[in-house]
Simulated scan of single mutants.
Amino acid sequence: MRVAVLGGGNGCYAAAAELSESGHEVWFWRRDAEALAPVLANGTIRVRDFKGTRDVAIAHPTTSLEEAIGAAEAVIVPLPAVAQPGLAAAAAPYWRDGQVVFLPPGTLGSILFARAARDAGNTADVSFAETGTLPYLVRKHGPAEIVISVYATRLPTGVFPARNADHAFAVLEQVYPAVERIEDALSGGLMNAGPIIHPPLIIMNAGPLEHFPAWDIHNEGTQPSIRAVTTALDNERIAVREALSYGAPHFPLADHYATDGDEWMYGRSAHEKLTDSGDWREKIDLKDHRYMREDTALGLSMIVSIGRWAGAPTPIAAGLLAIGSAIVGEDLYANGRTLEALGLAGLDRAAMKEFLFNGY
């Protein structure tokens, strides 16, 4: 299949490499020509994972967004949610009928991308899908070298508009066989694991993160009291999903740490593989890191706003968001990825269901 991968983050390089190695013809776009230069020059990305180390050929590395989107049947956008508005606007003129755009994860980015296309006057019938996590636990080890610690085994995915779900999944299952169909894009947004795992880890580890030159929030930072808060926060997410009549499985984060029962999105022993890699021992700037700017500011504001709309209280999420606002010195909810910001807060439940299905 002809696939475009858009962006220059860890997950983007992993997607370009894995999908190339899986036999797809990949257009790998990055805006920054200087940063992409090693891939442009050599046409490869070096990958190290459980299969060993090898150089993976990338068919079409490019700095032309129009070229990448124009060539593709499926477009993969594994970028942080903070990068979505700019890319959504830049890509808006280029979408064409039948394309499937995959946002892993989305934070309701599927709706944002669709709105940007409409605002640009592009009426193409495009399917925007979002899931709960990146398909990889991955870090760059050089300008064209990545280490993938874990591959996702389950990717619960919702499509916007939901009327296109059959077509979207027929395409996505060829690219990511791990996708699992769920109700719609709002359900997909409420599968996002980042706002559950990361805000408690950075906020409750604020002292050591600011004191030590590097700290692994997933290793020494994941203590019982922090896990208890994470579980309470995840219970709020699940309660919001249930208030909206979304069905199980809800992919509780506790399954990520469990050794039996239902597998989580990354399968068994993912947490141990992550901590054993050492790649998440890092310096985190609490004001600027994506765990604050994406998962707290955008992810928690999304959950709090949906909870308010659905009549499902989210005091833990709201409390963490308030503490995050104090740390960065701004109102993160006011600037967040909320139903208000998306222009959806005034819809009643029947109108929301129709919007999610039809796209208008």
Rank of each mutant, 00 (worst) to 15 (best):
T296H: 02
A88C: 08
I148A: 02
L112I: 05
N219A: 15
R349A: 15
S305N: 02
P156H: 11
D331E: 04
L244K: 10
I146K: 03
E294N: 08
T53W: 00
A185R: 12
T63F: 01
R2P: 02
F113T: 06
I111T: 07
R154K: 13
L300D: 02
F251E: 08
V101T: 04
A168M: 15
A90F: 07
L298I: 11
L298W: 07
A214Q: 09
C12E: 09
A120G: 13
Y333G: 02
M191R: 12
Y246I: 14
F169T: 15
V126L: 12
P249E: 14
R181A: 14
A193V: 15
R96V: 06
D295V: 07
A88I: 08
R290D: 05
E145W: 08
G194W: 00
A326E: 01
P224F: 06
R281K: 10
L339E: 02
D55Y: 10
T338S: 09
W215Q: 01
L244T: 11
G23A: 04
S245L: 13
M265S: 07
E173D: 11
G261T: 11
P195W: 06
E236V: 10
I197P: 01
F212G: 01
D348S: 13
A351K: 15
K283G: 01
G7T: 04
G336V: 09
S127Y: 12
I203N: 03
E282V: 13
L103Q: 04
H289L: 01
P313I: 10
V138H: 03
I327K: 02
A15E: 01
D125Y: 04
N335T: 12
A326S: 03
P80V: 14
S301T: 06
S277P: 04
D295A: 07
V240F: 00
R154D: 09
N235A: 15
H289I: 07
A129N: 13
D184I: 13
R139A: 14
A248I: 10
R241S: 13
L286A: 01
F50I: 11
I69T: 05
G267H: 08
L186I: 11
A120D: 11
D184H: 13
I217S: 04
D49W: 10
A170K: 15
I316Q: 00
A72N: 06
M352G: 14
A214V: 09
G106V: 07
V328A: 04
G106S: 10
R241L: 15
G359Q: 14
Y257S: 07
P105K: 08
E330P: 00
E354T: 15
A17T: 00
K273H: 08
A351M: 13
I217A: 04
L137Q: 05
L298G: 01
P143H: 11
I76V: 15
A88R: 08
N335M: 05
L36Y: 02
P85D: 11
A72P: 03
A81V: 15
D55M: 12
L79A: 14
T296F: 02
D216L: 06
L201T: 04
A351G: 13
A239F: 09
H250R: 10
G106R: 04
P315D: 03
D276W: 06
F28N: 00
A68S: 00
G324T: 03
G359K: 14
G324Q: 00
A90P: 05
V26F: 01
Y291M: 09
G11A: 11
P135Q: 06
H218W: 10
A124C: 12
Y176G: 01
